[in-house]
């Protein structure tokens, strides 16, 4: 069903990433020493990469409609602050979890509202949101906790359940729901339609502003789960600096997954595979014993090679198609 709306180029990227992930897993398997466990590699992959995938799904939703959200990490910091303040005041875990989810959703909706009503490009609104929400996270912590010293300690294991014990299951449930929705739902198609041409949507009787807001609404839900997992696995929540630079990692996974950064083209599946690919590269380098000095450079080179090879094959296929 997904294939029905994916063009040839995007399908190729997905197959490429699938093969790339399998290749990296094979490489890790070969590199394992006696006593190492391949099952451990597989078991940890989902929970480890969960916040990246969930935030990636949020980013993919908004990129589909031709927008972008550069404030995702700062929104998670606000959600973390809200969670930490409630933990500090001994509120029951479920209230803290709910506050974390709600904070992320409300701020994502607010981003959508500002873009829709002020008619300002998403990149500008969310670029401003990046420091603003980070500041808001600190204000929340400072007002909520007397003598706030830069971090909020969360010692009690009862508050670590989603991040430490259920991250994989939350991720699995969300991925299944997102893929089914993408394959059968009308809304993701409307997002792509708006991303292709806002004017065409309007002429067809659709409401582009409402479509944009719905994308930010869904992104808020995904981001809420990402925040929940990210903050409930930390011993100390640091609103001022948690996940700094996370948005670039997310955009990297989304673009690697074949989603067009200008909107109108892409898939949730691509983002998921892109996030796993980045994760497995880093894992493979550790298992290979690569020097810390080279790891970042090798990661960048591999990403460039994958996208470059994909594009080269695509160009050749296009030439052959034209000749035929």
């Amino acid at each position: 069903m997904i294939h029905g709306r994916l063009d040839y180029r995007h399908r190729r990227r997905i197959y490429f990433l699938l093969a790339g992930n399998l290749l990296l897993l094979g490489l890790i398997r070969v590199l394992l020493k006696e006593g190492s466990s391949f099952a451990e590699v597989l078991r940890r992959a989902g929970p480890d990469v969960a916040p990246v995938i969930l935030a990636g799904l949020a980013m993919t939703s908004v990129i589909f409609v031709g927008a972008i959200d550069l404030s995702v990490a700062s929104i998670i910091a606000v959600a973390g602050s809200a969670f930490g303040v409630l933990v500090h005041h001994d509120q029951p875990p479920w209230i803290c979890y709910f506050a974390c989810l709600a904070a992320a959703w409300v701020l994502s909706m607010w981003n959508g509202y500002l873009i829709r009503t002020l008619k300002i490009p998403a990149i500008i609104v969310t670029l401003a949101g990046l420091p603003f929400y980070r500041g808001l996270a600190l204000i929340v912590a400072d007002l909520g906790i007397p003598d706030f010293g830069g971090n909020i300690s969360v010692y009690d294991a009862a508050y670590h359940q989603p991040g430490k014990f259920y991250a994989g299951w939350i991720l699995l449930a969300t991925i299944i729901a997102a893929l089914i929705w993408e394959a059968f739902g009308r809304t993701p198609r409307q997002w792509l339609a708006r991303g292709n041409s806002e004017e065409a949507c309007r002429l067809l009787g659709m409401k582009p502003e409402r479509i944009l807001q719905s994308a930010f609404c869904a992104a808020g839900i995904f981001l809420g789960f990402a925040a929940l997992i990210a903050v409930t696995r930390l011993q100390a929540i640091e609103p001022g600096r948690m996940l700094v630079g996370f948005e670039l990692h997310i955009v990297g996974a989304v673009v690697l997954g074949g989603t067009n950064i200008f909107g109108g083209e892409g898939s949730f599946g691509g983002t998921i595979l892109g996030a796993f690919f980045l994760y497995f590269i880093s894992q493979a380098l550790t298992y290979a014993g690569a020097s810390a000095y080279f790891q970042e450079a090798i990661t960048g080179a591999v990403i460039l090679a994958v996208i470059g090879l994909d594009c080269a094959i695509h160009r050749r296929q296009k030439q052959l198609d034209e000749l035929a």
């Binding site: 394992l32 020493k33 190492s36 466990s37 590699v41 940890r44 298992y287």
Partner: peptide
């Protein structure tokens, strides 16, 4: 945490 967990699996000794 992630990196050290990987190290612990990569180098069982």
């Amino acid at each position: 945490r992630q990196k050290v967990q990987t190290l612990l699996n990569a180098y069982p000794q």
